[in-house]
């Protein structure tokens, strides 16, 4: 089988800070990382590669510096990498992004499984995966934690409210992954990083994948950002000092006052 993995470079949102005076983001020194959900999805794909000898191609869309996440994926074991990069993509919302990604996948050729993280931590929309599946006209299984392949059967364990489902699909299918419990991302060794430089890597423009300008960027995006602003400030709490015993007694008093304890 041929597997594609959709990956995205995101700023490490745990490091993003707000300037309290201006309410704007402080970006200086915030590292860019591979979206953790995509990282998990990539590792799921690489597990299948190891077991079944599948070919794994990663596809990303972003500015030239997003090459870093493609290189990371190659170092972790992917066979081929593609970056869609073009000013024409700037300002794309999830619809226009998935249009471009779907075009990229079509250019890659026949894919049996397309993996993606359930969402990216900078946008948290969880829309791109399903929208790509729709653009490609293939079924989707979202929010999976584990995937196995048995011949032509693709078995996915999906998280649902209060439990899980085991789903069966046939290729081609798009699967979005949540993160496994207690999972920590793998990182490549020095020689693996070095070896990745020799793997095929391509940068494709909008024209390369046959994406039409009217469906890209702001023009192609149904949603638009009207305003960005700092989260509203609220009235400050009634403050008390207290460590150890003193603090414990204060909390007890408050819990009583609010009738949480007798």
């Amino acid at each position: 089988m041929n597997i594609a993995v959709l990956i995205k470079q995101v700023p490490d949102s745990t490091e993003v800070k707000i300037n309290p005076e201006t309410g704007t983001l402080i970006r200086a020194g915030v590292p860019s990382i591979l979206n953790p959900y995509d990282h998990y999805a990539l590792e799921a794909a690489l597990e299948l590669k190891k077991k079944h000898n599948f070919k794994v191609t990663v596809l990303s869309m972003g500015p030239p510096q997003a090459k870093a996440v493609v290189q990371l994926a190659l170092a972790l074991g992917a066979d081929e990498g593609v970056l869609l990069s073009d000013m024409a993509f700037a300002g794309s919302d999830t619809w226009a992004t998935s249009y471009a990604l779907a075009k990229g996948i079509k250019k890659l050729g026949k894919m049996d499984i397309i993996f993606a993280g359930m969402q990216a931590i900078d946008g948290d929309t969880a829309q791109t995966g399903p929208a790509v599946a729709q653009q490609l006209g293939i079924p989707q299984v979202t929010f999976c934690e584990h995937v196995e392949v048995d011949g032509r059967r693709i078995l996915a364990r999906k998280q649902i409210d209060g439990g899980h489902e085991l789903l069966e699909a046939r290729p081609p299918v798009l699967i979005t992954m949540i993160m496994g419990k207690d999972w920590t991302p793998k990182h490549p060794s020095f020689p693996a990083v070095h070896a990745a430089l020799k793997k095929p890597f391509h940068v494709w423009s909008a024209a390369d994948v046959g994406a039409e300008a009217q469906y890209l960027g702001l023009k192609g995006s149904p949603t638009q950002v009207n305003k960005i602003y700092p989260p509203p400030q609220r009235e400050k709490a009634a403050m008390f000092n207290g460590s150890g015993q003193q603090g414990a007694e204060k909390i007890l008093e408050l819990l009583r006052a609010e009738h949480f304890i007798g």
């Binding site: 870093a68 290189q71 990371l72 170092a75 990182h187 990083v193 070095h194 990745a196 430089l197």
Partner: peptide, 17 residues
């Protein structure tokens, strides 16, 4: 020297380790 992307990937791996 190695390209900047690869170098940073190596440094990340070292940090994570």
């Amino acid at each position: 020297s190695i390209d900047v992307i690869s170098r940073n990937l190596m440094l990340d791996s070292l940090k994570e380790y």
